[in-house]
Amino acid sequence: MNFIALNAWDLVIAALLVVMLSLLSFRLALGISRKLLFAALRTTAQLLLIGFILNLLFANVHPGWVALLATVMLLAAGRIVMERQEHRFLGWWGYGVGTLSMFLSSFAVTLITLLVIIRPEPWYQPQYAIPLLGMMLGNTMNGVALGLERLTSSVTQQRRVIEARLIQGHPWCEAISLIRRDAMRVGMVPMLNAMAAAGVVSLPGMMTGQILAGAEPMEAVKYQILIMFLIASGTGFGTMGAVHFGARRLFDERERLRLDRLKQTEHYSS
């Protein structure tokens, strides 16, 4: 492969830029200089760790190890989705709604890709499976988090309006229909924007990476198109699933709106 390997000094120079940014934000009292350094350290540690793990994984190709890493990635994504919710569901649901939907959509789409489209030998070849799943999860996570946050915050704000429909004798799914539709749409907007901007405003990261690594631009483009479609469907299905499960959970078996199932903030009053 004809690409230029980086040495430690190359990274140090780039790191100096981040340090300068941190110093500047300290001077401007933005209050994020420390966070910035911490985030830079965190990303370095996490990436080195995953690099190390991938090295191990490539050396010992075994479905068990791939499954283990995939599970860890899924659980981490589930945690991030939960942390981003201001009005998250209480109990296991807070974690479960997002994680389950991401599992269903990301894993299904990744499996289809590996088994039907790319077909590496063996199909769980970590060189393909892990980056694909990572891209799926990373994007689906955003859609799911946005969709769920919109669902729960709208419901909290519009409690009385939803109850007005319940009082009028509307079934729960009708009472929540507009909010549910809106939340699904919100979760899918970033994915639509990404598809619209691809190649015109932004050169997507994966394609850039392949080109940097010496791949033919057209080969990289074909992969990128594939990835775009996979991300779009994975994010879409994941967001729909999460909002669907979430909306169901907001109502009980008597079709009552149960905001007590959400973490309550100070604005909430009975």
Partner: peptide
């Protein structure tokens, strides 16, 4: 009956 039938 369901919740919405009762409320009707």
């Amino acid at each position: 009956m369901t919740g919405h039938q009762w409320r009707q």
